[in-house]
Design a protein around this nucleic acid. Structure first.
Lengths: 225, 225
DNA sequence: AGATTAGTGACAGCCGCTGACAATTGACAA
DNA sequence: TTGTCAATTGTCAGCGGCTGTCACTAATCT
């Protein structure tokens, strides 16, 4: 399973340069904001040319999402490792919880976890980064839908249920993440609590009556003209 | 309620310039793609300076979303007009259906509807535009959540149910929109059908067993360590 | 009509990003 | 070791999005 015997000097050097660029970028972003940080500042701190930066990253944004990328593929792996007898939403929920317990070390190899947390806050509060983050999130949902469809043995393009389930799950996850970022407690434990509580709220939100209102017969809503 | 007696020459001129820029932009985007269209091309077709373009729009993107902006506020109005006795998800569903029946004229006043449709396709297929679209979508969800919370008389920050309900609804709506854009039939009727069918799938997706599997007892999933 | 104010055009300049080409450096064999 | 090849990098030039500044024109106000 270990397919990395000796990366070779060249490869190691590349990895070091890349990590240094990510670290330098995230530090500068956290210190002075994303927009106010120029690529020239980033490369100057690592002492490489601007052209080199753009050989490692397609754009300034990609550097900001380098660590996110790691956590996402880690989560996907966790989903793949769920036993097939678990129901879809159950497997997703357990995979989230499990991946948070083991992602720490991988992150720390590149940047301090605290910096990663601050980067997440920055993404949520910077419109340009938030937009890209949401697009990436949707890409992740697409991959999740295919995984779920495979688990359940259905055709992801013919059967809407995998995508619907993942959309519900993803929507609630984003809600929890947003609230976590807006709160005070940035610990993993807090995130875990929030996520569990929001996931528990999915069912109740679908039952139509919230306070004292009686259950009413749902007439056909297809056409209101 | 009509607070627009005489716009004045100056105001009318501004409106015409703006509409011309939007039309010119969307036509060029549709013809040659978003990225391959420069702001210089857009302003040349309207015969104004590049500086003027950036006085009307914060960026090239904003011109691409000018019509979307109209449809979104139209939908919000439709939600506000739903009678308060309707359950949240029911009101949202009916508001979508209702707003589609009346948005046509407002769009046509600026650009041909067919161009608006093509623009939507373009947004879905252009990564940079898709990202911004998703961020706008989330902004809309936030406004929806506040509306729903007000209708139901709950505190949007203390009670998670409005946001959860809207997240579920919004996620399913995006799914339908995405599929509509990927399909063949770009009529409003097709969109209506798709939306209804996806909304109907929300309930079934939450019930955990999809094929022959028996309902299993949900153990506690809060902690898997 | 004259004063005021809003909208515009022209110009200069920053920043993200890319193509092209030359220079450097690690990988591998002779 | 040394020479060759290929990968990586630096330098330079340039485009497109976007902004600040300032003078100029045209609509509005008195």
């Amino acid at each position: 399973m270990d397919t990395a015997p000796r990366p070779g000097l060249r490869e190691r050097k590349k990895q070091r340069t890349r990590d240094a660029l990510v670290r330098s970028a995230l530090e500068l972003f956290a210190a002075q904001g994303y927009e106010r940080t120029t690529v020239d500042e980033i490369v100057e701190a690592v002492d490489v040319s601007q052209r080199t930066f753009f050989r490692y990253f397609a754009g300034k944004e990609e550097a900001a999402f380098a660590v996110q990328e790691m956590t996402e593929s880690h989560f996907l792996d966790a989903v793949r490792q769920r036993p097939p007898h678990e129901a879809p939403l159950d497997a997703l929920r357990r995979a989230v919880m499990a991946s948070w317990d083991t992602i720490g070390e991988a992150i720390e190899a590149v940047v301090p976890i605290e910096l990663h947390m601050r980067t997440y806050q920055l993404i949520e509060s910077t419109p340009a980064l938030l937009a890209t983050h949401l697009r990436r999130h949707e890409g992740l949902e697409e991959q999740l839908a295919r995984l779920i469809a495979e688990r359940e043995g259905v055709d992801v393009d013919a059967d809407p249920r995998p995508r619907v389930a993942v959309a519900l799950f993803g929507g609630v996850m984003r809600l929890a993440a947003r609230r976590w970022g807006a709160g005070e407690d940035f610990s993993v434990a807090a995130m875990r609590e929030l996520t569990a509580s929001y996931l528990d709220g999915m069912g109740p939100a679908l039952t139509e009556d919230w306070h004292t209102r009686n259950k009413r017969d749902r007439e056909d809503t297809r056409d209101t003209r």
